[in-house]
Write a protein that binds this DNA or RNA. Structure first.
Lengths: 210, 210
DNA sequence: GTCTATACTACGATAGAC
DNA sequence: GTCTATCGTAGTATAGAC
């Protein structure tokens, strides 16, 4: 389908060059269609940009839905911890793989310089995942202090997105040419162990206060 | 100085739009000079791009030099741990502040899509900081296993760069409009506690093997 | 060193053929 | 729904005045 190709290429081009820097002509040519079809389908460059953001949100939702879970929240700290591990391991695998490469730069640009497109992405599966993590951290650590869970969630998340946002540095540190299965396993194991250590520390901090 | 303004604006524009998407005309106009002065000073667009990368490397080196330290490596695990804390806290403050905003997107783009410019940045202060962290983690945990220290360094680093690379998500999670002093303190405290927990876990893992 | 002038290519938007 | 044609603007590079 033409529209599918158009969106995939738009995500890549907008990610690389931003909404101003990208060229609708180049996007249309790469998709094998005329530039005016962008006007027809999306009303223009800005419409295509927002449609690309929506497309990212849909893909992310599909890929993370199973790991994040949609049912009720777990009741025991152990269950919550297990789901945290599952979300982070799944997300790490996505960050390591090639499938998320194109939309990562798109999202990072929006993270640093948010437009309406960020609301569309965060308002969907991304925000759900983040808020879910906050709740799970709260349950896993028995904390009623939501702010502490929010700060901790940021650092847990950081351990995973560094795989993508600092890809070249990671490869230098790992002395590899790509994040292969072995490197991914090592990272996932480290993230899991770190997460346990951090959650245990949060529980210990809670007991210090009481 | 004209060249200084030119480089600062080039970093911002190249960061936002990439080398292809950015316009030398717009960069020159914003710097208050003619476009042909870019040709004169840097030979063209590509030369300006590489000069911008070098400029980032110089700035980063200046800002991180004191925290990273230049002397001999510490000999005790406790000293090493203290320096790790100092580096991460300083880097977190830089990531939270506005001064690093412009070159962050430039670097992230290079991280995801490296060119010669990445070698110039990583070959300088950035690589030094990362390799230094690896050595410090090794000393702090008493590990002779360098690969484990490298993987751990990536996750430690991720806790800090998330402040910049996922800025908008962090603000959503913290329910704030900006990373103010209070939020930065909370993040630094969390990162420090997490780092201690992670290093302790690495020490415990080492003892499991012996 | 910094400027203007110019040559040539590419940009987004739009109108209209089919 | 997809195409071509065209308009006005903006892109890089380069030559040359001062």
């Amino acid at each position: 389908m033409v529209q599918q190709r158009l969106l995939d290429i738009a995500i890549r081009e907008f990610g690389l060059k931003g909404i101003e820097g990208a060229s609708t002509r180049a996007i249309a040519a790469a998709a094998g269609t005329a530039m005016s079809s962008i006007t027809y389908h999306y009303g223009g460059k800005e419409g295509l940009y927002l449609a690309a953001a929506d497309h990212i949100a849909v893909q992310m939702g599909q890929q993370m839905a199973h790991a994040v879970g949609i049912g009720a929240l777990p009741e025991t700290p152990g269950e919550a911890r297990g789901i945290i591990h599952r979300i982070l391991a799944t997300f790490a695998a996505k960050m390591a793989g090639d499938a998320t490469k194109d939309w990562s730069l798109f999202i990072v640009r929006e993270q640093m310089n948010p437009t309406e497109a960020f609301e569309r992405i965060y308002g969907g599966p991304m925000g759900q995942m983040m808020e879910r993590l906050v709740e799970l951290v709260g349950i896993a650590t028995g904390r009623r202090d939501a702010d502490a869970a929010r700060v901790a969630t940021i650092t847990l998340f950081g351990q995973v997105i560094v795989i993508r946002a600092s890809r070249a540095s990671c490869l230098k540190l790992l002395q590899r040419a790509s994040i292969d299965a072995e490197a991914l396993s090592a990272l996932q194991a480290r993230i899991a162990a770190n997460t346990d250590a951090i959650l245990d520390r949060l529980i210990a901090e809670r007991q210090d206060f009481s």
